[in-house]
């Protein structure tokens, strides 16, 4: 079983991200479960959602206490709560920030210490450029795909197209692609952030056909 916790704020599409993640696993024939944290969250309040992948029926209903991976949609959460709480040894994390992995580690002692297990992605900049909406979910899921290999970009694109339509779907897919590539380009460069945001690259590619970036390109990280 592979368990993912997504942290964000109300209005940032955290629950949708959890569902997109589950859908992407489901499309690949895996057993999945997506559980939003439940509450009377209002816009801007911290929100958490859980996604599980497994190869057999998922029986448990507990919240994920020991995630294999954490996705942080809002960097302001890093200073207010321990988003890495319970992360398994060797677990991985994607953080939406311009800061470098080491800058994050300096602020958050529980952030994955090993090289190549903490990916920082300027997802806000990416979605501003390619989506035009401040919803970084798809970009972060693209980054997650690159970091963990748990889902493929094709499956993610398919899921996005099930949930969104037209330009919004394409914008999300493009954001996911860019973030995916960002992780491939930057993972392991622990001191490199994106202080100036990102430069626009042309990703106006048609849907998914040209997208596949081989998962083999993901740096080999094993859970020691």
């Amino acid at each position: 079983m592979f368990q993912v916790v997504i942290h964000g704020r109300g209005g940032q599409g955290v629950v949708t991200a959890s569902e997109l993640l589950a859908r992407s696993g489901f499309a690949a024939g895996r057993q999945v479960q997506a559980i939003p944290s439940f509450g009377s969250e209002r816009m801007g309040a911290p929100v958490v959602a859980y996604t599980r992948f497994a190869d057999s029926k998922i029986l448990t209903r507990e919240p994920i206490l020991a995630p294999d991976a954490v996705i942080v949609q809002d960097p302001t959460l890093l200073r207010t709560m321990n988003v890495f709480d319970g992360l398994v040894p060797g677990g991985r994390a994607v953080v939406n920030t311009r800061e470098s992995p080491n800058e994050i580690r300096a602020a958050c002692p529980d952030a994955p210490a090993e090289s190549g297990r903490l990916a920082t992605v300027p997802a806000d900049d990416i979605v501003r450029e390619y989506l035009g909406r401040p919803i970084p979910s798809a970009a972060l899921l693209g980054a997650f795909a690159a970091l963990t290999g748990q889902i493929t970009l094709e499956a993610l694109a398919q899921s996005i197209q099930k949930v969104f339509k037209g330009k919004v779907a394409q914008g999300n897919i493009n954001s996911a692609n860019v973030a995916y590539q960002w992780v491939l380009d930057h993972l392991g460069q622990e001191d490199q952030g994106a202080p100036g945001g990102i430069e626009h690259v042309d990703v106006e590619r048609p849907a998914t056909s040209e997208l596949p970036i081989p998962i083999a390109g993901v740096p080999e990280v094993t859970n020691a």
């Binding site: 589950a22 057993q31 999945v32 479960q33 559980i35 439940f38 998922i58 209903r61």
Partner: peptide, 12 residues
Amino acid sequence: MDGFVLTHASDV
């Protein structure tokens, strides 16, 4: 059915 735990969870 358990509220949230089932009603709001996505399952196969």
